[in-house]
Design a protein around this nucleic acid. Structure first.
Lengths: 333, 333
DNA sequence: TTGTACGCGTTATCAA
DNA sequence: TTGATAACGCGTACAA
């Protein structure tokens, strides 16, 4: 029909005809059916976003960044929640493929083992960009931070302020960011010429309870073996660790220093404000969305990964600030 | 084709044929195209979710509740962000209609004026359920809290503890929840036989800056007219108010008590922990999703609204706790 | 400038 | 139990 031309706008239509069509559309309440459009064009202008968690403030912020870009570019968001499980993540991927999204943004679930499902998506020709939690070497771009360098930075900060026995509450074993943060933790020790005790690297996870449990196991060590400082995999784990320290009748940072990773909403507000690495979630979301849209458009160089800048935020929990200031002051390194 | 019967499962297919089809599907990497299904069935199994904000912790929590239910029921989520503007909200509605979602969950933007766009959605026969920020009387269900009662409850708490000059930082004028919370504020006064000074009801908004500005205007009043306590429209506004109080060299709650609404993540962690109303965002999201899916299925009684229970959370900022306890203790009323 | 035929991949319906 | 045909509502390609 000529109606299509009127609504798509990219074809010559007589003024009078156009007016007639528009008027009829108005009275009939007509709106182009995007489902039919999608079928005809095999293009949905929809992007799938798969997140392992919805509430942890990093992800809403990242989604806000993604939405900002996709809205501007005329794409819409199909939001899927993997709940940190591979099963639901694969399910999400299959669904997104079935729904013929134009591309996928994904942050991997904590118990991933295999890259096969991602490879299949790529093999089908669906553009895929990882954000924050990436899988490398399968030909998909990754937009994240430099986890190794950031972990090294915050560990170095502790070492430079005289801490020697430093523990690490590590993240899920199979996740790249866990391994990279651990690598940064180790590199900082190597650079400082300080031996790191492997007994002080304990498995934890991303949640407060995991950090709490891991910290308890460290506190159960004979007192000569106990850490004097702790580098947690992220802020919630650090909160759990701080709680365990308090429950043991000890004080942060005087007895044990604790630092986190991501600078979530609560970090500055904790009873002992948390020293941490600021992860610019919003910018990261924007960058990831831009990368994906470039890939969808077939622009070159889209497989290249991108790193957004982090920042060390020094607060009281590391005990590195000379006479500990009162209140919620925040200084940047 | 017979393929359709195999995948849909609801039609008799011979075992051998089924096996042949599945094997072929596997080798070809075939997956049913949901776009084509949607066109044929005029059913997308997709729900549109429109939120005015993405990051404010209430909405991620609500979305998590929504996702929990929709995942279980086999629906997917198209997430739209109105950014508190009517323009983008209308845009979202038009898009969702074009994308033929099976139903819509919406929390209205702060500057809504007209219910016409919602009416149009309903006229098209698209099920619509409001959550948290509702529009009443247009035949759409609303899943929210009892704003009037909750505001009355927290105001009454202040009155019962002897506060008399109480201010209200009101929400956007055209929003139902603003009006209802104001009504509750007034009713509490009436019930207590306390006159409320209309000069102490000032327009603010949902953000910290709005609360800050509104509080400054109250602090600029001659000291006899100044409020002794403040009921903020929500927690972020209360944070802004607390900041303004501190900047004026005054102390919460000794000089001015401040209470909020929603119990977001930071409320318990503020330097002076905030007394507030707990809004169960997750449950609210679940209830709204259930209501919508019932409506999509054409079940009866779906236009009925639903109220989820709130709770008064008493912390230090209201100064009602006898000798003010140190730390972040939280007591329930 | 406008209209017609065909295909996008599926389901419903009816026939075999 | 399976196959054929006609929708679903659009865009493309071509003809008028």
């Amino acid at each position: 029909m000529t109606v299509s031309r009127v609504f798509s706008g990219r074809a010559p239509v007589d003024q009078k005809t156009r007016a007639r069509v528009l008027k009829a559309a108005r009275t009939l309440g007509y709106r182009p059916n995007q489902i039919a459009q999608s079928l005809a064009l095999s293009r949905t202008r929809t992007i799938g976003v798969v997140v392992p968690e919805i509430s942890h403030s990093f992800f809403p912020e990242a989604i806000r960044g993604i939405e900002e870009v996709t809205y501007r570019e005329g794409y819409h968001l199909l939001l899927m929640h993997s709940a940190e499980t591979v099963e639901r993540e694969q399910d999400a991927l299959v669904t997104l493929e079935s729904k013929r999204v134009d591309g996928i943004l994904l942050s991997v679930a904590q118990d991933v083992r295999s890259a096969a499902p991602y490879r299949r998506v790529l093999d089908r020709g669906i553009p895929l960009v990882f954000f924050d939690r990436c899988v490398r070497g399968i030909g998909a771009a990754c937009v994240g931070i430099d986890d190794e360098e950031s972990a090294c930075l915050i560990t170095r900060h502790l070492l430079q302020h005289g801490y020697r026995r430093i523990a690490h509450l590590a993240g899920p074993r199979h996740l790249l960011i866990s391994r990279e943060r651990l690598a940064g933790f180790i590199r900082a020790h190597a650079e400082a010429g300080v031996h790191h005790d492997e007994a002080l690297v304990v498995q934890a996870g991303f949640h407060e309870d995991a950090g709490h449990a891991a910290m308890r196991s460290l506190l159960a060590l004979p007192s000569v073996q106990r850490p004097r400082a702790v580098v947690a995999i992220n802020d919630p784990a650090a909160y759990g660790a701080m709680r365990a320290v308090a429950e043991a009748g000890l004080v942060v940072p005087e007895d044990i220093a604790v630092v986190g990773f991501s600078d979530d909403l609560r970090a500055a507000l904790m009873p002992v404000p948390l020293t941490t690495i600021r992860q610019p979630a919003y910018d990261l979301g924007r960058a990831a969305a831009e990368r994906l849209i470039a890939a969808i458009r077939g622009e070159p160089g889209v497989r290249r990964s991108q790193t957004v800048q982090t920042e060390l935020i020094v607060r009281r929990s590391c005990g590195c600030g000379g006479p500990a200031p009162r209140g919620n002051d925040t200084r940047r390194a």
